[in-house]
Each structure stands twice: as C-alpha cells, then as structure tokens.
C-alpha cells in the first residue's frame, strides 16, 4: 500500500523542486534585465522624474562603430593563435614536469617559474619592445606574432598545470595495460595517456580561452596590433569620446564572452556525459 502512495509523492516532490528551480531562474533573469535597463537608462540622456542621466555622443558612436568592430576579427585571431601555442607549450611543459630526465624537468619548471613570476603586461612589452633590441630582425615581424608569442607563452605556463593534472588523472592500470600489450612508453603516452588527459583538460582550457580573449586587450598597449581595445582607445582619445569608445568595446567583449561561455557550457555538459 505504501509503495503505491510513495511513488506519486516522490514525483510531487520532484515537481515541486523543478518548480522552485524554474521560479529561481525566472527571478534571476528578470533582475538581470532590470539591471541592464538601469544601465541603459543611466546612459540614455533622458530626463526622468527629475533625474538627469548621462547622455552619450550618439553621432560619435554611429560614426566609429564600424571602425571599432573591425578589431573583433583581430581579437579573435590573436586569441585562437595564442591558445594553440599555449596548448602546445602546456603539453610539453606538463610532459617535462613528469619526466625523470633532469634537463627536461628543469626546463619545464624553469619556464613555468619565470613566466608565473613576471607580469603578463611586462612579458607583452618584452616581446614587442625589448626583443628587437636583442634581435633587430624581430622588429620587422608583424606585431600580431609578438602578441601571440607573449600570450601563448604566458597561458602555456598556467595551462601546463591543467595538463599535468589531466595526465595524473589517468590511472596506473591504463599504462600497465598498454605496456602489457607491448607498447613502448612513448606509444603509451601518445595513444593512451594523452587522449584521456586531453578529455580531462578540455573544459578548463575553454575557460582559459575565454580569459585570453580579454587579456588580448593588453596587447593594444604596444600600439602594434589593431584589435578591439586598440581601436577603441585610438578613436576615443582622438575625439575625447573615451566614454563612448570604451562602452562600445566593453559591449563587444562582453558579447563575445557570453557567446563563448554558452559554447563552453555545452562542451562541458557533453564531456561530463562520459564516452567520447
């Protein structure tokens, strides 16, 4: 008898739980909207109930929107190239960190320590301004590559820890099974350990990529890469419209982040589901 009444009750509880979650999400969504409207209103230049809000220079915005937006492609390009370099460096650094061969271990820890021990801002300037002093030929290399090198090396050092954890997450039994089949340690690493480590490391790397799209703005300070931030500060300073220019850039960065976060969440959900 109890078994008959218990099931609907469990279902009722579950439904109540779902309803609660739905109500919570609705409230959060509405509040977001209100906050967004408040900001928009704040910059609308309207007179409302005696409150005089800030008015933006709409003509400046319409005239320069296309120019600033033109930096979006460069921002994305530098981010993708840098994350690719970072992944390669991170993997090598992680392997070095796990190596029993002293020079590899030393190289890896040295690299990570040096990069983590200095500011990203400094590293960027180093690659743009200091490196040509050592190698004059470097000055002719497009600014994009200096930026990619700086961002890639910086993120590679931080991401190596993610890779190392990923490699460590693969059980000893997996290696033993591979060795027992006759695989060499190299084959075991390449075919068995790294694919599983990557699966583990992909979601955190997605987060790193999102962070990188924003850190790429630092590259603008050198004046050589014409991405979002560089374009915004250029027109903003020239016409004393920094407020408008930075708001436009902020909207682009934010929008980009929202889109990437959406894909990141989907990726994470898919990875956590297991096979493949």
């Amino acid at each position: 008898m109890t078994a008959v009444t218990q099931k609907p009750q469990a279902e009722l509880l579950y439904e109540a739980q779902l309803r609660k979650e739905r109500i919570f999400r609705t409230h959060v969504g509405v509040t977001w909207l209100v906050l967004l409207m408040t900001i928009v209103f704040f910059f609308s230049g309207q007179n409302f109930l005696g409150i005089k809000t800030i008015s933006l220079d709409n003509i400046f915005i319409t005239e320069n929107l296309a120019f600033i937006a033109g930096g979006l492609g460069e921002t994305i390009r530098i981010s993708i190239l840098s994350i690719l370099l970072a992944m390669i460096l991170a993997l090598l650094a992680a392997l070095g960190r796990l190596s029993t061969f002293p020079p590899f271990y030393a190289l890896s820890t040295f690299y990570v320590s040096l990069i983590r021990g200095t500011p990203l801002y400094l590293q960027i300037f180093f690659f743009f301004l200091a490196l040509p002093q050592i190698f004059p030929a470097w000055a002719t290399v497009p600014g994009l590559w200096a930026g990619v090198l700086a961002l890639g090396m910086n993120y590679g050092a931080y991401m190596s820890e993610t890779f190392r954890a990923g490699i460590a997450s693969v059980s000893k039994g997996q290696r033993e099974a591979a060795l027992a089949l006759g695989m060499t340690p190299g084959q075991t690493m390449l075919r068995i350990v790294i694919p599983q480590a990557l699966r583990f490391a992909i979601p955190p790397m997605g987060n790193d990529f999102i962070a990188m799209t924003k850190d790429s703005a630092l590259v603008s300070a050198t004046g050589f890469v014409h991405e979002l931030m560089w374009r915004a500060t250029k027109v903003g300073r020239a016409q004393f419209n920094n407020l408008e220019a930075l708001i436009v850039a902020a909207v682009f960065y934010w929008g980009l982040t929202l889109i990437l976060t959406y894909f990141q969440n989907r990726l994470e959900a898919r990875m956590s589901r297991g096979d493949r």
């Binding site: 059980s171 039994g173 997996q174 033993e176 099974a177 591979a178 060795l179 027992a180 089949l181 006759g182 695989m183 084959q187 075919r191 068995i192 694919p195 599983q196 699966r199 096979d275 493949r276």
Partner: peptide
C-alpha cells in the same frame, strides 16, 4: 611482452576507444 598476454582484475579497457578499437590497438600500434 609480445609473448605474454595479461588480464587484470579491473579490466583496464581504454575508455576513449570502442570495443573494436581496444582490441585492434595492440596489433596495429605494436
């Protein structure tokens, strides 16, 4: 190791490979 085959208590199948890929991995790679 090529002359010996081993079966473990906790199986140790490769989770990122299908059943068939698990079984051909040795012959193809090694």
């Amino acid at each position: 190791r090529l002359r010996t085959g081993m079966v473990f208590q906790d199986f140790n199948l490769f989770p990122h490979m299908s059943v068939l890929e698990n079984v051909i991995e040795g012959p193809v790679t090694v």
